[in-house]
Design a protein around this nucleic acid. Structure first.
Length: 720
DNA sequence: TCCTGAGTAGTTTTT
DNA sequence: CTACTCAGGA
């Protein structure tokens, strides 16, 4: 403590609860941090406070996040608070930290020093290759499903020998799992889940390594705790041991990643297992106006099994939440465009406006309308830099320089650019490799001996050898240059019609290597760079700089905030998504998703739904989302009560084709898409009909009440 | 080896 | 509807 009042300035401006969390004594704690409650601030201030008050040195704590972005944000804020070098700190993602640990103890972890990391695409092709070799029917065992199985087993902390298999199918799955792990081990590669599992196994098996880290990390801090999976939880528990304390920050109401293994239940387990005395709740929200928070609270109270939390704000009620009922998806998009235009002309920056949707497919119609209106926008999601094909090709050459036994990398480029190695020679190679139980590279070497440059496999072996030879002693950017040029990739794309962008990306890879070396004065090896490429695949492509609207899924919006938010497609089947209704607790997760979406808005929130929308090439009729009904009417401002086809695109059809025009007007006003009310089933929408004017049945979608056929003659249906 | 056409599936995503 | 995969022909 060298400054006069070091902690005063650090702690200044914190509210009581935040202060309590930041200055908790050495004990495990659970911080329930609502949306917009200053979660990141509390986390970083806690770290800074611990260091500044001399309770721990920067090396004595471990801070874990889920994304690189969050880790970077934490460190940036920290270095603004304290004059310390944050470089060497153990702060990063679960995967990043496990990687670091495994590199340091690769021998004990039974891995080669230069082990490579498979991303999801690599893993899938590795599994496909294995299944082909094992003669597994990929109709009965879809590779994607097999991958999901393997990953979820690993995320539960289970190896093949530990999983249950009662029938032939699951036994076969287990077999593939086992073989897959063997294949990875032989090739010196690990997938994402393996990074964690290996690390966990290393720590549980090796007491001296475990004790070393346990005595080092007195304080462990975890961000987004509600997103941890089983294995991550076990890992934390192991690392904490009996004496260390874990500071877990999370929000059970924002748990939206169960589908990838997150267990909200970890929060309750944590309370028990870590002897948590009291839970600190951060409920004051600094982001949104009152009406928005009231709506969010109203929605989320419909969930059971919450830890319990109610957001409040000292800001005023603010504007009402605007609700628009669109005729169809095109009308909805046009409405949004019109609103954005007037917001923009009133001075709102486009980048302060977000368009959120449940599924990516919904962006198409929005994009079309925005494009026609000449409004600039950015769509989040899609391919990232290091996932682009040409980049993966170049990286595969680099991977072969680092470790030629990496079969996945070898297969990716052995014939790309084409060098006359067809399916036949590849088969021979794989046959030989299997017979010798060696890598494809070994098999290739055995085949061609010391091979002189030439065609086919010989040429490839010579090429990789030449690359490796030239690469020794070169800098990383120079190696990247070799991988893009000597490989023939550059020439290949030069001859391609639309190869210009790809060449530009190859150049970008070299720039990335330059930046990487500059940022890592101590560690700039090839393996480090390849690890970086796998673990930090870069931003989701989206141009920066220009003032543009932000389009993204609700998932992608988590953690972000905007002045104005549009949530579109609020219909049953889309939000909540129909698939979710079959999953256990699926509806509650969808509701949390809605909660996350609503709490992104600071000042203005628009909710819209369409009576019909084009989905999978068919017009679908849906009723408005139950989540809309869960918001008190007093918070809403309905911008229209009846949707008109005014700005819609595709036409409408009256229910009856046989009816005459007068009948259509009088006795037959039931159109597909007409909102109706039934005394027993509630609100619904007409989706189909049969019969004629005198004897007509209509099919009505009553949402949660299901689909019903009703005789018009008997059912007392009212138009709404 | 490359291209074309048939066939199919179609939430959410980070590492 | 569309985007992606895969098999088979030029």
């Amino acid at each position: 403590m060298n400054a006069q009042h070091p902690s005063t300035s650090l702690l200044e401006g914190l509210n009581d609860k935040q202060l309590e969390a930041v200055t908790l004594p050495h004990q495990s704690a659970l911080i329930l941090a609502g949306a917009g409650s200053g979660k990141t601030r509390v986390l970083t201030t806690r770290i800074a406070w611990l260091i500044q008050t001399g309770q721990v040195s920067p090396n004595g704590l471990l801070a874990v996040t889920f994304t690189n972005k969050a880790a970077k944000e934490m460190l940036t804020r920290l270095s603004a608070m304290l004059p310390i070098n944050v470089r060497g700190m153990w702060a990063g993602t679960f995967h990043g930290l496990c990687n670091r640990l495994l590199r340091a103890h690769h021998r004990e972890a039974l891995l080669p020093a230069t082990f490579q990391i498979l991303d999801t695409a690599d893993q899938l092709s590795s599994i496909k290759r294995l299944m082909k070799q094992m003669n597994v029917d990929d109709e009965k065992f879809p590779p994607k499903q097999v991958m999901g199985y393997i990953n979820s087993c690993k995320e539960e902390g289970l190896r093949a020998n530990a999983v249950d298999a009662y029938d032939a199918h699951s036994q076969r799955m287990r077999e593939i799992f086992e073989e897959y792990d063997r294949q990875c081990q032989r090739e010196g590669v690990v997938d994402f889940a393996e990074l964690l599992l290996r690390c966990y196994e290393l720590l549980s098996r090796d007491a001296s390594i475990r004790q070393h880290y346990q005595s080092r990390f007195k304080y462990i801090l975890v961000d987004e705790f509600q997103d941890t999976n089983r294995l991550q939880y076990l890992w934390l528990k192991l690392l904490a041991g009996a004496d260390n304390c874990v500071f877990a920050v999370g929000d059970d109401d924002q748990s939206i990643y169960a589908f990838r293994g997150a267990r909200v239940g970890n929060m309750r387990d944590f309370e028990q297992d870590f002897n948590v005395r009291n839970i600190v709740k951060l409920e004051q929200n600094y982001r949104s106006h009152g009406n928005i928070l009231d709506a969010a609270n109203a929605i989320i109270t419909h969930n059971r099994n919450r830890l319990g939390k109610n957001l409040w704000t000292s800001a005023g009620k603010g504007e009402p939440i605007r609700v628009y009922q669109a005729y169809n998806d095109i009308d909805e998009a046009n409405f949004i465009v019109d609103e954005i235009k007037s917001l923009h002309s009133e001075g709102t920056e486009l980048s302060e406006i977000a368009l959120l949707y449940r599924s990516n497919a919904q962006s198409r119609v929005l994009e079309h309308a925005l494009f026609s209106a000449g409004l600039p926008y950015r769509v989040y999601g899609g391919l990232r830099f290091f996932e682009r094909a040409e980049i993966k090709h170049a990286l595969a050459y680099l991977r072969l320089i680092a470790n030629p036994n990496d079969d996945t990398a070898l297969l990716r480029v052995i014939n790309f650019p084409t060098r006359g190695i067809g399916a036949r020679s590849l088969e021979q190679l794989q046959e030989a490799a299997r017979a010798e139980d060696c890598s494809l590279w070994q098999a290739a070497i055995n085949k061609v001996g010391n091979g002189r440059p030439g065609k086919g496999v010989e040429g490839f072996v010579a090429l990789i050898r030449q690359m490796a030879e030239e690469a020794t002693g070169l800098t990383l950017p120079e190696m990247a240059e070799i991988a893009t040029t000597l490989s023939g990739l550059r020439t290949h794309y030069q001859n391609e019609k639309e190869g210009e962008d790809r060449i530009a990306n190859l150049d970008e890879l070299i720039s990335a290597a330059v930046t990487f070396v500059n940022n890592n004065e101590d560690a700039g090896t090839l393996t480090d760079f390849l690890t970086f490429a796998s673990l930090e695949a870069g931003e989701h492509q989206a141009e920066v700089g220009r003032d543009a609207l932000q389009l993204m899924t609700v998932h992608a919006a988590k953690g972000l905030e905007f002045r104005t938010v549009f949530i579109s497609g609020l219909e049953e089947g889309l939000c909540p998504h129909e698939q979710s209704l079959y999953e256990t607790n699926g509806l509650e997760e969808e509701r949390r998703l809605m909660y996350v979406a609503v709490t992104r808005a600071r000042q203005r929130l628009y909710l819209s739904h369409a009576q019909s929308r084009m989905l999978h090439g068919q017009v679908r009729y849906g009723i408005s989302s139950r989540f809309l009904d869960e918001i008190p009417e007093a918070l809403l401002k309905r911008l229209n009560t009846r949707a008109s086809p005014g700005r819609g695109g595709y036409g409408e059809s009256p229910v009856s084709q046989t009816a005459t025009s007068s009948e259509q007007k009088n006795s037959m006003p039931w159109k597909i898409g007409q909102a109706v009310a039934h005394s027993k089933f509630g609100q619904g929408v007409v989706v189909n009909y049969e019969g004629n004017a005198n004897d007509m049945r209509v099919q009505v979608n009553f949402g949660s009440e299901g689909m019903k056929w009703l005789m018009l003659e008997y059912a007392k249906l009212e138009k709404v």
